[in-house]
């Protein structure tokens, strides 16, 4: 499986010089942000994410119902002025439930994405920089985890985590979300390792950990930022799939996954139970992945497999 190393490594430093009329050399940050600003996809995703986040924070305020309220006079009602997204068969307000579920899913996504990226960065950098047996062992564990579909391990481990709070799910999802990025970081580190500035630091007697922290990680940071962004959507997808089958978020907590699971049976007859949470889920993940994709283009417009 070593072929992937060559396939997906983006040379971070190889930015095409863009013409910006200025005497001073353009800083990398300004270059990337100027590229981002001219990508329509970035704006679509960014505005989408902003709207969703604001809605998750303030969306409950104008609603008359709380997510635990049961409206016994309107059970199984279709969307109306009173219940914007309709009610479930025991009279729960779907709008309030969707917002509360969205909050939980968003929090999980926003924590798991960056956390998995950090793990990927550290493990990949250690494997690539130290090399030798450490490297072999780490690559081997990564390959193993890629062969075992992580969904199945999630389900197995969730038997233990069921009794714990939903925070445990965050660690579970980030614990298995770092493998592919770690391979990419590892390959990147291997080439960084031979660069003069890292050699210089090494010959000056700087210890390994400091080199990784001060020289390697900053140089792969753009990859990690992209991974963290793309990981948000991936984490939300994993969480909803697990919760859908009853392995993830447990009652009384609500997430988009548990909502979809509850609305699944009535999907054809009372579609509002399913369609609204599903649409919001897709919109959220789509926005996050559009931002991630635009970032990837902006950081590295020449990269092969990731180019757009």
């Amino acid at each position: 499986m070593s072929m992937l190393d060559e396939a997906s490594v983006a040379d971070v430093t190889a930015g095409t010089p863009e013409v910006i009329k200025s005497k001073k050399p353009v800083s990398r940050f300004r270059l990337i942000s100027s590229r981002l600003r001219s990508t329509p996809r970035f704006w679509v995703g960014f505005i989408g994410l902003a709207v969703i986040s604001l809605w998750a924070i303030f969306g409950l305020a104008p609603n008359a119902w709380n997510y635990t309220d049961l409206d016994v006079r309107n059970m199984g009602a279709s969307p109306s002025g009173l219940h914007w997204f309709g009610t479930s068969d025991i009279g729960e307000d779907i709008y309030a439930q969707t917002i509360v579920g969205l909050r939980k899913s968003l929090i999980i996504g926003l924590i798991v994405g960056p956390l998995a990226a950090i793990i990927a960065g550290i493990i990949g950098a250690v494997a690539g920089y130290i090399g030798g047996w450490w490297d072999r062992a780490i690559v081997w564990v990564i390959d193993l985890l890629l062969v075992l579909p992580s969904l199945f391990i999630f389900i197995l481990l969730s038997q233990v985590l069921k009794s714990k709070s939903w925070v445990a799910l965050i660690f579970l999802l980030s614990g298995f979300g770092w493998m592919i990025m770690a391979r990419v970081i590892r390959a990147q580190t291997k080439s960084l390792r031979e660069r003069d500035f890292i050699k210089a630091a090494r010959f000056m007697g700087v210890d390994t950990w400091t080199i990784i922290r001060r020289h390697v990680l900053p140089n792969v940071s753009s990859l990690l930022i992209i991974d963290a962004t793309l990981g948000i959507g991936g984490a939300i997808l994993s969480e909803t799939t697990l919760s859908f089958f009853g392995f993830g978020i447990q009652a009384p907590d609500v997430s988009l996954g548990t909502l979809l699971s509850a609305g699944q049976g009535a999907a054809a007859t009372r579609p509002w139970l399913f369609i609204f949470p599903a649409a919001i889920l897709v919109f959220t993940v789509l926005s996050a992945s559009l931002v991630g994709d635009a970032l990837r283009d902006a950081v590295d417009p020449t990269s092969g497999v990731n180019r757009d």
């Binding site: 959507g233 859908f244 399913f274 897709v282 993940v285 789509l286």
Partner: peptide, 20 residues
């Protein structure tokens, strides 16, 4: 992008709704 943003069970159920 949209398809990739959907969990597989959502695709399945949406197809079922369409078929019904």
């Amino acid at each position: 992008f949209t398809v990739l943003a959907m969990p597989s069970f959502v695709i399945g159920i949406l197809l079922m709704i369409t078929a019904t």
